[in-house]
Amino acid sequence: MAKIPEKTSILRTVDVNRSFGMVTAADNLNIEVGQGELVGIVGANGSGKTTFLNLITGYLRPESGRIQVMGRDTIGLPPRLVTKLGVARSFQIPQLYTNMSVLEGMLLSLAATSGKGTGIWKPLYRESWTAEGLDTLERFGLASYANRPVSELPEGGRKLLDIALSFALKPKLLLMDEPTSGVSIEDKFQVMDTLAKVLQEGEITTIFVEHDMDVIQRYSRRVLVFETGRVIADGEPERVMADPEVRKAVLGRV
């Protein structure tokens, strides 16, 4: 097992279990993620990667165990309240406001995180939010789309916007479910370069699910390998991937 960095713990799961009928999706998960880490998660389909994200965000409730975000127990909280604690997520299939402009989506995230999301009198378009929204879009390389409808974004842009919407929530922990799926191979590294830079600048602790080992090796210094709901390896990507058992689990071949 890899050493747990001696930084503040952002996420801690203790003996977390969850199954769906006969399928074990989370099998005694004990995972600790420290401040500032960029952790990749790999594993075959059905190995429990997305379940893990769903457990952290409160979308699914574990059958047993504890989940702590920055020392606070989150089990039983709905996704909305877990989000308020500082956990944001992006989705495998981007979840966007397709009938609005790109900027408006960003403004909604900023309104939400400032606690003024249900305000009924002052306008959404405020100078400070607009400036911040444009700035974030700039960082994600989406500035040129700011006033265009979301529906005009290309697939890579949709993925980035989905993450930008979560990023604008100023999370302490960002979960990304396959940020590069659906993005062409040529664009993959460009998307990840953009993300890695933004996340590093924002000092945001990140966990991301990824199929592509090249992406993991290039961007993260720690990888968790999932198989049938268990973590079978945890450590530096090069070391972990040298293990034939891991190679078999992830790639289906040694």
Partner: peptide, 9 residues
């Protein structure tokens, strides 16, 4: 025009 109005949409 407020955040609530946009969240409604």
């Amino acid at each position: 025009a407020s955040p609530a109005g946009y969240f409604l949409r």
